[in-house]
């Protein structure tokens, strides 16, 4: 969990039978998430988008030499001027490498010439499963010694 510290008084936890809680104004992401098919792999991308996808391909799972794209973890990429927004999920909710992976993905996208800023939005739907691993990803997993047949 990472977040900006804020005034603790403004965000007291609700109490049992408490009266209405104060409603502080906050900013958050309200964009609807992608309705495209998942995972996204950037197959038809060109131009700058293609370069961002190439950078994302370079990010591997910390535990396996397989790209996060081939694992099917990337659910969408949006480019708006120089701002890249990546929708992404994780294989496991208790993933201890969450911060590392998210930072690496953001750094990879932001490192592309023409991208000023990159942000990852963590999404949990649709569910990730082995079915979302690409053929190339399955091949890499097999080489690594993990069976992906069910």
């Amino acid at each position: 969990m990472s977040s900006e510290p804020n005034d603790p008084d403004e965000f007291d936890r609700p109490r049992a039978d408490a009266d209405a809680t104060p409603c502080g104004y906050t900013e958050y992401d309200t964009k609807e998430r992608t309705t495209e098919e998942v995972p996204a792999t950037g197959e038809d991308a060109d131009g700058l988008e293609r370069e961002v996808w190439a950078a994302l391909y370079g990010v591997e799972d910390p535990e396996m030499p397989v790209s996060v794209v081939d694992l099917g973890l990337i659910y969408g990429l949006e480019l708006d001027d120089g701002d890249a927004t990546i929708d992404m999920t994780l294989t496991y909710s208790g993933c201890p490498a969450r911060e590392i992976i998210l930072e690496e993905v953001e750094a990879a996208a932001a490192g592309v010439d023409g991208v000023d800023d990159a942000e990852v939005r963590l999404v949990w739907a649709p569910d990730w499963s082995l079915d979302l691993v690409t053929e190339q990803g399955k091949e890499a997993l097999r080489e690594f010694g993990i069976s992906v047949e069910r």
Partner: peptide, 18 residues
């Protein structure tokens, strides 16, 4: 799972610290 639920709570503006 706790992290997932606290994340959802943080969308309302709470911080992990508080």
């Amino acid at each position: 799972h706790a992290r997932l639920w606290y994340d959802a709570i943080q969308q309302f503006g709470y911080s992990e610290e508080s």
